[in-house]
């Protein structure tokens, strides 16, 4: 995908460190910049720090040291109201899904649209489209707790994508999926990316890395950013 060098960064890390108590270093001096509309692969083995990096972007975690800038806002100086608005613009698909097991698939996917007061008709149409795309239509009214892990993963991705977020973060989005369903998920990401969303996919799925191209591939090893491949370069 082409990137324009003049385009401002939508996400910027400057010498970011994250240390979990007592002294577990998750990220060390990580610096990178992502432009709006880019699709990024974040690679590295399990425990390398990929999930921590995504959690720092959506302010679920806070850096021990360094600066994180998202959509022109430095996260450490952001007000609660600004944080709330920022989070509405970030779709996050968690590795552990974070679906509410007592709610149906429909109710889970509707949540981000409900908190932004999207009209019911729009919510219904969007959910139907996403369920159809991700092959989950027959699970619409099933409680999330009753789904298989693969179905839960797709439902979590649908929730993350529901609100057409300008930034979408996906943590191991194909980890529980077969090849066919993984392709459906990548199709969804591609659609969002073409519509202007910035997509960051944390993955170590070799098929994804082989079959799909990204503007940048960031590789993390033991908390350090060791490779920053840019497509332009």
């Amino acid at each position: 995908m082409d990137t324009e060098t003049s385009q401002p960064a939508i996400i910027e890390f400057i010498k970011v460190n994250k240390i979990y108590p007592p002294d577990v270093v998750a990220l060390r001096d990580v610096s990178f910049s992502i432009k709006a509309g880019e699709m990024i692969f974040l690679t590295g083995i399990s425990g390398a720090g990929k999930s921590t990096l995504l959690k720092l972007i959506c302010a679920m975690e806070h850096p021990t040291k360094g600066l994180i800038d998202v959509q022109g806002r430095e996260l450490s100086s952001i007000t609660p109201a600004e944080m709330q608005l920022l989070r509405q613009k970030i779709g996050m698909a968690y590795q552990d899904f974070k679906l509410l097991p007592g709610l149906t698939v429909y109710q889970n996917i509707a949540m981000p649209m409900e908190v932004t007061y999207t009209p019911n008709r729009t919510i219904k149409d969007r959910i139907n489209y996403l369920l159809d795309l991700l092959n989950l239509t027959d699970k619409k009214h099933i409680r999330a707790g009753k789904l298989s892990r693969g179905e839960q993963q797709r439902a979590a991705l649908a929730r993350a994508a529901a609100n057409y977020p300008p930034i979408l973060l996906a943590d191991e989005p194909t980890g529980n999926l077969d090849q066919d369903n993984a392709r459906l998920v990548m199709k969804l990401f591609d659609q969002l990316n073409r519509a202007g969303s910035t997509i960051i996919i944390a993955t170590h799925d070799p098929l994804i890395l082989r079959d799909y191209s990204a503007a940048q591939t960031l590789e993390i090893r033991q908390g350090e950013l060791i490779k920053n491949d840019t497509l332009d370069n």
């Binding site: 109201a81 709330q84 970030i90 974070k98 509410l100």
Partner: peptide, 16 residues
């Protein structure tokens, strides 16, 4: 609590 936590993460306002 889990639901409120998710709501917080998806940007639900305090009043919501």
């Amino acid at each position: 609590r889990p639901e409120l936590e998710i709501m917080r993460l998806i940007g639900a306002s305090r009043s919501y």
